[in-house]
């Protein structure tokens, strides 16, 4: 069955000598086909990791040619920088709130969409629109809506009576982080919704019928049938999203640039600034490595929780 790697068929007529090379190559097509891909993979994995691991211990800079090893100086400087800790805290808040919000909205939207029969396709299309936004477009569309002087959001919220005076959504240190998180939730909930809708469709209808016979209410059905069945999907999308949001650079950078007064500086923005504002490549590499460690730690906790959940689920 292992078709591609199969050896040449001995029953085939012997080929002309000139074509032997072609035949030889064709037999190994599966391996040959991997070469460009492996080159790409080394370009995005092996080389960057090796590069950062080396440069993180040097004083390489975009300003000056040449470099030398400086030991752990970059890591010490990073860990001693209060802004690094601020950025770490910001990143954790940004990631946790964004992912939780996206999941919650995505789940509610998916459940609501499942109940709807009239205009379901149209609604579905409407709800995934945010997902299609390029980050540059999202940043500017929202920045205009949120403008403190003539933004439509201030106007609407004042009409409804939620706020008394126009707010500086992106300009005040207190509001900026919650605002970019809401933007991120807006952008990310469609992905969660779509994945959960797909998950809902795999739940056998008999389970609900059985629950009906047992006299379960809507809430009980959700809690005892729907949610356990969705567990796998939810775990997967939460892990994927956590990684994406944690690593995300564009949203924050394009919306607030990390400001005001570093209120929204996340680790990717911090790393970028070290390299491209301060030209300190060694520092940037060190920060990138530290980010990997933090992300690895978060994922380890997730997988731990998943395993625990599985065990208690089976027990």
């Amino acid at each position: 069955m292992s078709a591609l790697a199969a050896k040449a068929d001995p029953h085939q007529p012997a080929r002309a000598p000139g074509r032997r090379l072609v035949a030889w190559l064709d037999e190994r097509l599966a391996i040959l086909f991997l070469i460009p891909g492996l080159a790409c993979l080394s370009a995005v994995i092996l080389y960057p990791v090796a590069y950062n691991a080396v440069v993180g211990f040097t004083n390489a800079s975009l300003m000056f040619p040449g470099w030398r090893f400086v030991g752990t100086a970059n890591f010490e400087a990073t860990l001693a920088d209060p802004l690094f800790w601020r950025a770490t805290l910001n990143t954790l808040v940004w990631t946790a709130c964004s992912v939780a919000g996206q999941l919650l909205l995505g789940l509610v939207a998916a459940l609501a969409l499942e109940q709807v029969t009239v205009g379901r396709t149209t609604l579905r299309l409407a709800l995934i629109v945010p997902w299609a936004f390029p980050s540059i477009v999202m940043a500017f569309a929202w920045r205009y809506m949120l403008d403190p002087l003539y933004g439509v959001l201030n106007f609407l919220l004042m009409q409804v009576g939620l706020i008394d005076a126009p707010q500086q959504w992106l300009g005040s240190p207190d509001l900026a982080m919650p605002t970019v998180i809401v933007m991120n939730i807006w952008f990310g909930f469609p992905f969660m919704m779509v994945a959960i809708v797909a998950g809902l469709q795999t739940i056998p209808q008999e389970l609900y019928e059985a629950a009906d016979i047992d006299g379960a209410g809507a809430w009980q059905k959700f809690w005892y049938v729907t949610l356990p069945a969705l567990w796998q999907v939810i775990a997967t999308v939460v892990i994927l999203r956590t990684i994406w949001v944690f690593n995300n650079f564009d949203f924050v950078f394009l919306t607030t640039g990390g400001g005001p007064i570093d209120a929204t500086t996340t680790l990717p923005v911090y790393a970028y600034n070290a390299g491209w504002q301060q030209y300190d490549l060694g520092r940037m590499a060190a920060v990138a490595l530290v980010m990997m460690v933090i992300l690895g730690f978060i994922l380890a906790v997730y997988f731990r929780l998943l395993r625990l959940q599985k065990k208690t689920g089976e027990a």
């Binding site: 995005v44 960057p48 590069y51 790393a271 590499a285 980010m291 990997m292």
Partner: peptide, 17 residues
């Protein structure tokens, strides 16, 4: 590795690239 690459932080890749 393919999956890992897909999730790799841009901040880590951009400088070497």
């Amino acid at each position: 590795t393919v999956l890992l690459a897909y999730l790799f932080p841009q901040a880590l890749i951009v400088l070497p690239l």
